[in-house]
């Protein structure tokens, strides 16, 4: 019994001691937590989307960043990461070439707020997954946007727009997302 108690106390002490000497770990991107969470969502979204051009076979997944905001900045720092077995390519793109940029996902920065309608028109018929942090993005014709609910980031998906783009969105993503029609 004494041996047991000693063993447990030793393990407990080790836990506490190790905890005390451990330093806090820094955020790697330098972005705010909210921007990091939104960027993390975008990486996760890509795991649950099938592109009709068979992106899974291509070996690379490309994110285009149009305009600028804090989420776009975090995304740019995540290039060359792996999503599953695929390497992530992140590139800044210009509005004039968005439909032919070869992107699987286009992130539209908040700086493009006033040109949003034009941008979405240019993307009609393409199979690009559009994502933005602009308010009500999914309601305004985009595919995936963000909302804050109870101080938590919530993803919103416009299911009709995703179908129009020929994207197949996995059930798991639909389970955690708020559906916009």
């Amino acid at each position: 019994m004494k041996i047991m108690k000693t063993a447990f106390l030793t393990v407990l002490s080790f836990f506490i001691m190790a905890a005390c000497i451990r330093q806090c770990l820094a955020q790697p991107t330098g972005g705010s937590l909210e921007s990091d969470v939104k960027a993390a969502y975008i990486l996760n979204i890509m795991k649950f989307v099938d592109w009709r051009d068979g992106a899974e076979a291509g070996g690379k997944l490309k994110i285009g960043v149009l305009g600028s905001d804090s989420v776009g900045e975090v995304l740019e720092k995540l290039k060359n990461n792996k999503i599953g077995e695929r390497i992530l390519v992140v590139e800044k793109v210009e509005e004039s070439g968005i439909a032919s940029c070869g992107c699987h996902l286009l992130y539209i920065g908040k700086s493009e707020k006033d040109r949003l309608d034009d941008i979405l028109k240019k993307l009609k018929g393409s199979s690009i997954l559009t994502v933005s942090d602009l308010p009500d993005f999914a309601r305004k014709g985009g595919i995936a946007g963000f909302a804050i609910e109870n101080d938590r980031v919530k993803i919103e998906i416009n299911i009709n727009e995703s179908k129009r783009a020929g994207l197949k969105i996995g059930a798991k993503l639909l389970e955690v997302a708020r559906l916009i029609k």
Binding site: P28, L33, D36, N44, R152, V176
Partner: peptide
Amino acid sequence: SSPSVFELSLDELARV
């Protein structure tokens, strides 16, 4: 290094 938030799954990101 701690890219912690980027290692979280979809479920974990959405958790409350």
